[in-house]
Amino acid sequence: MLDGITRSLRAIGHRVIFSIWRMGVATRFFWLTLLQSGIVLRRPMLVIKEIFSAGVLSLIIILVSGLFVGMVLGLQGYDTLQTYGSEEALGILVALSLVRELGPVVAALLFASRAGSAITAEIGLMKATEQIAAMEMMAVDPVARVVAPRFWGAVISMPLLAALFSAMGIFGGYLVGVVLIGVDEGAFWSQMQAAVDFRDDILNGVIKSVVFGVAVTIIALFEGYDAPPTAEGVSRATTRTVVTSSLAILALDFILTAFMFHGV
């Protein structure tokens, strides 16, 4: 009885200490990546290749989801706003919710599951097939050669993807609100332009997407680099990447929103 309690307490303590220890390693890994980022300037082709695999290959899912999210916002927003006879505010509703929140957050969540998981699986598999070890043997720093280009490629792609998501969503809201339902086009755009501020809304959205991009990418890279070099280890690391980075995005979003819009 007493033995069971001690064992379970010990297990909890072990898990807590293990996660704190991992957190420390991840921070050191992040620092190491930043230190090795010089390769980005020396060999830009490496980064361009990673922008392709992280950004260009995520385009379809980002554009299509953005369009549908905007269309749903248009429908739902119209349904609620027409009760108060202010359908013309639909533009404000669609644009502000996309630019401030949905654009950066949903794009980052999609990015985590589309590009983050791919990064983890790729690096985990490189480790499992001992490619990383081979690089070390040849005196090639794997952090500089493998990790840093992926980091910068993904961090550059993220704000562009978030902006595309928001733009596509606003187009979707326009399609449903103005073309389909028949909200006045001038009021839709003019009220939107009057309400959306460049610095307060658009720039803050871009800052959010950059922060999310850094968080998602470093989690994905670390999980891959730290994965046990087995088939099971890689699969669990990939799952952990998606779960951890999704939680990180939502938690960071709360913190950033509290900082940015506390006066609103």
Binding site: V56, M168, Q193, V196, D197, F198
Partner: peptide
């Protein structure tokens, strides 16, 4: 492709700044 992606992304940012923003 990377060029198209970057141009489209910057285009989206410009769209947000000019058409959606004031």
């Amino acid at each position: 492709w990377v060029g198209i992606f970057v141009v489209a992304g910057i285009g989206a940012l410009l769209f947000l700044a000019l058409k959606v923003g004031n």
